[in-house]
Deep mutational scan, measured.
Amino acid sequence: MATDAALRRLLRLHRTEIAVAVDSAFPLLHALADHDVVPEDKFQETLHLKEKEGCPQAFHALLSWLLTQDSTAILDFWRVLFKDYNLERYGRLQPILDSFPKDVDLSQPRKGRKPPAVPKALVPPPRLPTKRKASEEARAAAPAALTPRGTASPGSQLKAKPPKKPESSAEQQRLPLGNGIQTMSASVQRAVAMSSGDVPGARGAVEGILIQQVFESGGSKKCIQVGGEFYTPSKFEDSGSGKNKARSSSGPKPLVRAKGAQGAAPGGGEARLGQQGSVPAPLALPSDPQLHQKNEDECAVCRDGGELICCDGCPRAFHLACLSPPLREIPSGTWRCSSCLQATVQEVQPRAEEPRPQEPPVETPLPPGLRSAGEEVRGPPGEPLAGMDTTLVYKHLPAPPSAAPLPGLDSSALHPLLCVGPEGQQNLAPGARCGVCGDGTDVLRCTHCAAAFHWRCHFPAGTSRPGTGLRCRSCSGDVTPAPVEGVLAPSPARLAPGPAKDDTASHEPALH
């Protein structure tokens, strides 16, 4: 009773807030009518008042009428009001819900409408889902798969039609296919003929059939049928067999079959498995989609049935006599038709004709302190090069084509190399640097090759510096006499390219 009084008091307290929050009759008014909170006449009256005075006034009048009803109607109103779709449509209802007392429970059932309790003993237990329907569909599909699609060729003596089998029958139906081979029951999904010589313990000319048996419980189990008994694959494991010639990621696949039913060829011909030897223990289905393919039931050349050999690369099948050149017997292992072999060759040939990528240039590290003349020119003028003790990398590039010797140069053309002071002394051009340390401070000019250098860098042994005729380390061993002091540049003949010694390969005349 306390809860009923509290709900009535809360409705009177929030009546105006609810009326202002509800700006549309749908969905709240319609939901109240659906849950029998508002009768039909009051529903029509509220809609009429909404058209006349507006939605807030109409709902305020409806809530005032609701306060005169019993506690069950008020409880049902609060339940409908706080439904998710009403809270989404009328956003101003959320503060009312947040301020609702926590001790007021809106989930209690309506009085007088409590459903009768059902004894637990009368409640049926839930049924577990079964796979009976899938099993029945598999039974119905198996006879259809064994139905012949056409008439065999005159040369083929193997013609068999499976008798119709009602689904209610649980007995196995067997077809006489000759040579002791028996087909599987209607619940078998796949059958492959297997030679009895590969099964340990088999006697006589009995041949087993590799099947997948579907049981009534819905589970499946792969086994071997020899005669009327089934054997699990673990009985046929043979770890010492060295003649297993397995197909790549293979499961067994029928390579020879008669049109209309699988079996042995007439005249004692023995149908073979995809792999010879003992049956392997793992009978998992292969991951290669080509091995799941269903080959055609007629020859791809003459479009006739009979004894066919199936290609492992495509769905086509052929007569042995229709092949070019014809085959006398079934080859062992994987067999592919000429079209598949030709496609494989065409895929391999473009790969062989692809040009080989060019090898990157060989990189040879230079000892610290040495650099090529090109690196000396590329440096920024007026700045010493940083990191001189790091190992430089010199790339061996292809030799350029031989060019004509340089033409003779006048001494005026070499004027930018040297600057003559007032006393006739050779001065260095701006930006000249030593080729060893890279520093341009207090550098000297070689009178023979006009290269800038430090005496301490080229002659670290402490050799005394002569007063005139300074030469760098590369030119100090040259027998050519030094030019007379005061000459602007060496003779043009000295600039012609010539053979250089091994220790002077990195010091070429550089223009500054």
Rank of each mutant, 00 (worst) to 15 (best):
A21S: 02
I18A: 00
K50V: 06
S107N: 01
S71H: 14
C55T: 15
A140V: 14
L67V: 05
E207W: 00
I209Y: 09
R9G: 08
D238N: 05
H14M: 00
A61H: 13
P129R: 04
A121I: 08
R110N: 05
V20H: 00
F43L: 02
L10R: 06
S24V: 05
K221M: 10
G180L: 02
K102Q: 15
A246T: 08
T232Y: 07
D238L: 12
Q94S: 03
A117W: 14
E270I: 05
I181H: 00
P124R: 07
P56D: 01
Q225P: 05
H48T: 04
P116S: 12
V256I: 05
A271E: 11
G91C: 01
K253G: 05
L255W: 11
I209D: 06
K161Y: 06
S195P: 08
D41F: 04
V256H: 08
M194F: 04
A142M: 09
L75I: 12
A160M: 02
G201E: 07
E237R: 05
A6G: 13
V188W: 05
K111H: 05
I181A: 04
F100M: 00
R149H: 12
L11S: 02
T183G: 06
P143H: 11
T16I: 01
E51G: 03
V226E: 02
L158T: 03
A121D: 08
A31R: 01
K253Q: 15
S196T: 07
Q157T: 07
P109N: 00
L75D: 01
G155Y: 12
D36K: 03
L177G: 00
W65N: 03
P126G: 14
A140Q: 08
A6R: 06
A33G: 05
T147V: 09
Q262W: 13
Q44I: 09
A170F: 15
Q69E: 02
E137A: 14
R110T: 09
R79F: 06
K245F: 15
I18N: 00
Q225F: 01
L67K: 03
N179I: 12
P254D: 05
G218M: 10
R89V: 00
Q173T: 14
K133Q: 01
V214P: 03
Q108H: 01
D98V: 03
P116I: 14
K235W: 12
A31N: 00
G178A: 04
D105R: 04
Q94Y: 03
P129V: 03
T68H: 04
G219V: 12
G218E: 01
P176H: 11
D23G: 02
V123Y: 14
L49P: 01
Q172P: 05
P119I: 15
F236G: 06
L67H: 06
K159C: 12
F100Q: 13
L106C: 01
K159L: 12
A138E: 11
Q189S: 13
D98K: 00
K131Y: 02
I181D: 03
V214G: 05
S248P: 14
S24H: 01
K111I: 14
Q173K: 14
L10E: 00
R113C: 14
R127D: 03
R9C: 00
K235H: 03
N244Y: 13
V104Y: 10
A152K: 10
L29V: 03
A5I: 13
L175D: 10
A140M: 03
L29I: 02
V226M: 06
H35V: 02
T3M: 15
G251K: 11
N244T: 12
D41L: 05
L177H: 10
D198F: 05
K120Y: 14
R110W: 15
T72P: 05
P119K: 14
G201V: 09
D70K: 15
E207D: 07
Q182D: 03
A121P: 09
H35Y: 07
K111G: 08
H35G: 02
A31P: 01
A193C: 14
E207A: 01
P162S: 04
A202I: 09
P148W: 02
A140I: 15
S250K: 05
E136H: 12
P162W: 13
M194C: 05
S249M: 13
S156E: 04
K83P: 01
P125L: 13
V192W: 05
P115D: 02
S241G: 08
K133M: 01
A140R: 12
A117Y: 15
F236R: 04
L66P: 03
S239A: 13
D84R: 07
E167A: 08
A152C: 04
E88C: 04
E88I: 04
K42E: 00
V226R: 05
S99Q: 01
S153F: 15
A258T: 09
R139N: 05
A271L: 13
R132S: 01
S156Y: 08
R247D: 03
A6T: 06
Q69D: 03
A191C: 11
S64R: 00
E216W: 04
D98I: 04
G251Q: 04
E216H: 04
S241Y: 12
S234L: 10
D103T: 02
G218H: 10
L32G: 01
A160Q: 01
P126S: 02
S168W: 15
R139Y: 13
A152E: 01
R203V: 15
